[in-house]
């Protein structure tokens, strides 16, 4: 994975637990001298190792950590070097998800070694179904975090449910349901 991802892990740990903890995470992963660069492509094992070490040091299950990482990823990429691209991704939550594959395809031009995930969004009677495709395993909790982070970023209220898992159905699928906004004026009228 590109260093950008690992740096987001670093940013998450440092912002939540401090620099010393991050040093301990690196030491636990036997990567004491690791200096991360955004545009360098690192072995996936480094990312896995960092995530598992962070899980051990922070005493947090890997799933929970990846979920937090997903939320942080949105914040991080929205603020880090990709902020301009992020803002061009869409005007709202749904359009952003619709454009996600195309954005990844275009990013792939700049980062040709990146193995980008794929997302397909289809509307159904309760909202949207999002299929998540990836050559990597185990990142579904992160996707859930990303969805929550995006909804928060666009200030929209959505609920998400991991309805199908890759282990059971060969694909991770999420049900996206938009919360109906409650208008204060209506409440008054109702009363």
């Amino acid at each position: 994975m590109y260093g950008l991802v690992n740096k987001a892990v670093e940013d998450l740990v440092i912002s939540s637990a401090g620099l010393e903890t991050w040093q301990r995470v690196k030491a636990h992963a036997a990567l004491e001298n690791l200096q991360l660069l955004d545009t360098t492509n690192y072995e996936d094992e480094i990312t896995y190792s960092l995530v598992h070490s962070a899980s051990a040091i922070l005493d947090m299950p890997v799933d929970v950590l990846l979920h937090a990482f997903g939320r942080h990823w949105v914040l991080y990429t929205g603020e880090a070097g990709w902020a301009k691209l992020f803002s061009a991704g869409g005007d709202d939550f749904v359009s952003f998800l619709e454009n996600l594959d195309e954005m990844h395809a275009r990013v792939n031009m700049a980062m040709p070694d990146g193995r980008m995930p794929g997302f397909s969004l289809t509307e159904n009677n309760t909202g949207f179904m999002l299929d998540y495709h990836s050559s990597r395993q185990g990142f579904a909790p992160m996707v859930l975090g990303v969805l929550e982070g995006l909804a928060e970023q666009f200030e929209e209220d959505w609920t998400f449910e991991h309805v199908d898992t890759r282990e059971q159905h060969g694909l991770d699928t999420f049900q996206l349901i938009r919360e109906t906004p409650v208008v204060v004026g209506n409440l008054r009228n109702a009363s």
Partner: peptide, 15 residues
């Protein structure tokens, strides 16, 4: 893509 490449170049410069 020009925007993306520009942003990537910025990151490369930072790196």
């Amino acid at each position: 893509d020009i925007i993306i490449l520009h942003q990537f170049r910025d990151l490369q410069l930072l790196d």
